[in-house]
C-alpha cells in the first residue's frame, strides 16, 4: 500500500505521478494543478509528486510496479492498455471520434468503464482519468494526397507498435515504424515521405522545416489515459478517492480545452513557416473513413467499435 509513515505534519498518502513530457508542456501544468487541488482539498494529507521527462523510468516497468501495488501513476495511451485489454486499442482506430464533442460524449461511457473494470480486476491497473486529449493527428508529408489512393506507396512514419501501424496502413499509406527521436531526420533524409502527428507535436519538432504539406486527415482524435495501481487506489479513504478522480478530470478537461484552443495557433505557425495546407474539406473524406475501417478488422476490435458508436448515437 501507499501509506507513508504517519509522522507529525507529514502527508498520510502520496502518489508519485510520472510522464514523458517536458515541464513546459500543457499536460505537465495540468498535473501540477491537479496536485495542488488535491493537496488543498485534503489539507495537505494527500500529496501528488509529479515527475516529468520519464524520470520515474520506462512506461512498461511502471505499469508492472502498479500491478504490484506501488504508489505510482503514469500518463499512458489506449494502444498500450490494449496490450492488457484488447478493446482499448479501438480508441486509436481510424476515424473513431470526429472531434471534441465525441470525446466529451465518451467521458463516463459505460462501455469504456467496463474495459476499465476488466483492467482493474484482471491486471490491477486503475484508470484515473480519460480527460486528457491532444486533438487530431494529421499527416505531414512531402507529397500531396487527397485520397487513400493517392497515399498509396507513401511512407509515413508512425510509432513502431502494431496498433499504430495498422491504423496508418488503413489510410492507404505504407506505415513505417521509427522511434520518435528519428522522426525529423527520417523525413529530411527521405527514409520516410512524412509522418503523422498532432499539430502541437509537429510544431515542437519543427516538422515544417522538412515537410511541405499538411494533409489534414484527422485520422485519430488522440486520447491519453491516466492510470495508477488499483491496490493502492483501493487503500485510500473513499473521500480521497473521489477527490483524486474529480480533480484529475477537472485539470484534464482544462488542458484539453487549452490545447484545442492552441491548435489553430500551432497550425497557423506551421503554415506561416512554409507548409501548405490541404484542408479536410478538400480531401475525399468518405474514402478515407471507409478505408480506415480496415484498421478495426486488423486489430480485431470491430465489436468494440460498434459498442462505442452505439453510445455516441452514430
Amino acid at each position: 500500500g501507499g501509506k507513508g509513515e504517519p509522522k507529525e505534519g507529514e502527508p498520510s498518502y502520496m502518489l508519485r505521478f510520472g510522464h514523458v513530457q517536458t515541464e513546459k508542456e500543457e499536460y505537465h501544468k495540468a498535473y501540477i494543478r491537479w496536485a495542488e487541488a488535491v493537496k488543498e482539498r485534503t489539507n495537505g494529507d494527500f500529496v501528488i509528486e509529479v515527475y516529468p521527462n520519464a524520470q520515474l523510468g520506462v512506461e512498461e516497468d511502471i505499469l508492472e510496479q502498479m500491478r504490484k501495488g506501488s504508489n505510482v501513476g503514469w500518463q499512458t495511451d489506449p494502444a498500450r492498455l490494449g496490450d492488457y485489454v484488447e478493446e482499448f486499442s479501438v480508441l486509436y482506430g481510424a476515424y473513431l471520434l470526429s472531434g471534441y464533442d465525441d470525446f466529451e460524449g465518451l467521458l463516463g461511457s459505460p462501455t469504456i468503464n467496463s474495459w476499465s473494470k476488466k483492467l482493474e480486476d484482471e491486471f490491477g491497473i486503475k484508470v484515473l482519468s480519460y480527460a486528457y486529449a491532444q486533438g487530431f493527428r494529421n499527416v505531414m508529408a512531402n507529397v500531396q494526397a487527397r485520397s487513400p489512393r493517392e497515399l498509396r506507396g507513401v511512407r509515413i512514419r508512425t510509432a513502431p507498435a502494431p496498433a499504430w501501424l495498422a491504423t496508418v496502413n488503413s489510410l492507404g499509406a505504407t506505415a513505417t515504424g521509427l522511434p520518435y527521436g528519428e522522426l525529423y531526420n527520417g523525413i529530411q533524409t527521405g527514409v520516410v515521405d512524412g509522418a503523422e502527428l498532432p499539430v502541437s507535436a509537429a510544431r515542437a519538432l519543427s516538422v515544417e522545416e522538412v515537410a511541405d504539406y499538411l494533409i489534414e486527415t484527422r485520422h485519430i482524435y488522440q486520447m491519453n489515459v491516466l492510470v495508477a495501481s488499483a491496490e493502492w487506489f483501493n487503500s485510500l479513504p473513499k473521500e480521497y478517492q473521489d477527490i483524486l478522480l474529480e480533480e484529475a478530470d477537472k485539470a484534464g478537461l482544462e488542458a484539453t480545452q487549452a490545447l484545442e484552443a492552441k491548435a489553430g495557433t500551432d497550425m497557423q505557425y506551421l503554415l506561416d513557416n512554409g507548409m501548405t495546407l490541404i484542408p479536410w474539406e478538400e480531401l475525399d473524406s468518405e474514402a478515407f473513413i471507409k478505408s480506415g475501417q480496415q484498421s478495426y478488422e486488423e486489430l480485431g476490435v470491430v465489436e468494440a467499435k460498434e459498442a462505442i458508436y452505439k453510445e455516441l448515437g452514430k
Binding site: G1, G2, K3, G4, G57, V58, D61, E64, Q65, K68, G69, S70, N71, P179
Partner: peptide, 19 residues
C-alpha cells in the same frame, strides 16, 4: 518499503534495453 522490490530487477534490464 512502499517501493516494490521488482523495480530493482526492472531497472538494470531496462538499462540494457536502451537503444
Amino acid at each position: 518499503p512502499e517501493l516494490p522490490l521488482i523495480t530493482m530487477v526492472q531497472l538494470p534490464i531496462s538499462q540494457t534495453q536502451n537503444v
